[in-house]
């Protein structure tokens, strides 16, 4: 937890790392749209190729990316199985007892698997792996700022996330310290029934909450002393600025989407049901 900056940010100097976070949020969104535009073998092949290209230029080791897929492996298998068994079609490939597997089912399952994997890989590359949580928060604040007209507390929300991010390492450390202190008094968190273990957390949670409230209180005073008075009239040290490469990336993705639409219109290869 204390070793790498929390979150999954992977520090490197790739092209994608250097893009403006606001553009990356938009790119990630458009890329998701693209993955849903795919309907046939050729478009899915193009999608897979684009994902491979993204991985290559992101500078993130594929091994680490694969790790991020681990939590969704169950969902992935589940969707594949459902699609394989429940899609009916014309070309029966295999049948036994009540189970019938059609060619269409296999293709759909394959397509959906590709879509899910690309979705995860694409968004992790654009967002979590190449963008620090704080840059992401700032980008969201900036992108959502039109909502301020509707009196949505966009700045306050972003400030909340920033402070939460700032205090994660502090509170993690504090939790470890309190745990050690209670263990020194013979507390046992690892044995006994679930009920007993839940009770054993009280000596940790109470001091942790008390301390979190104390910290919040002191932080609020410190912020007031540094002239904080909400988002109104605030300027920024680091203003996000876009460069040609940001627009190029955006255009590439839009063009990619347009290409996928064309492939769909001319319908090459097997088309998804």
């Amino acid at each position: 937890m204390n070793n790498i900056s929390f979150g999954q940010y992977y520090p490197a100097n790739s092209l994608i790392h250097s893009l403006d976070a606001r553009f990356k949020v938009i790119c990630a969104f458009l890329y998701i749209v693209c993955s849903f535009l795919c309907k046939n073998i050729l478009s899915f092949a193009a999608l897979l190729a684009s994902a491979a290209l993204l991985v290559a230029i992101s500078g993130i080791p594929p091994k680490i990316l694969l790790k991020s897929l681990r939590p969704i492996i169950f969902i992935l298998l589940f969707t594949v199985v459902i699609n394989m068994f429940w899609t009916s079609g014309e070309n029966l490939v295999f049948s036994w007892w009540k189970i019938r597997i059609y060619y269409e089912g296999i293709m759909n399952a394959l397509f959906i698997a590709v879509r899910i994997v690309v979705l995860i890989v694409g968004t992790s590359i654009f967002l979590t792996y190449t963008t620090t949580p704080i840059a992401l928060t700032d980008a969201l604040e900036s992108l959502l700022s039109p909502l301020k007209v509707l009196r949505a507390p966009v700045h306050e929300f972003a400030m909340m996330i920033t402070i939460a991010l700032r205090f994660i390492p502090t509170l993690t450390e504090e939790t470890n310290r309190i745990m050690a202190a209670q263990k020194a008094r013979g507390a046992d968190f690892t044995t006994g029934s679930i009920f007993k273990r839940a009770r054993a957390l009280i000596p940790i949670l109470v001091p942790l909450f008390v301390s979190a409230f104390r910290r919040a209180d002191e932080l609020a005073t410190a912020m007031e002393c540094r002239c904080y008075h909400g988002g109104e009239g605030r300027t920024r040290l680091n203003i996000p600025h876009s460069r040609p490469r940001d627009y190029v990336m955006l255009l590439l993705i839009v063009a990619f989407g347009a290409g996928l639409i064309l492939i769909n219109i001319y319908g090459i290869g097997y088309t998804m049901k």
Partner: peptide, 29 residues
């Protein structure tokens, strides 16, 4: 400046924290 250093640092990066006051005051970038 207060007693507990952890409870008065607002940002996750040093320079952003130092900029916090001037930002609140609306100083140009």
């Amino acid at each position: 400046v207060f007693q507990n250093p952890d409870n008065q640092i607002v940002a996750t990066i040093v320079e952003e924290d130092i900029a916090f006051g001037p930002e609140n005051l609306g100083i140009p970038t």
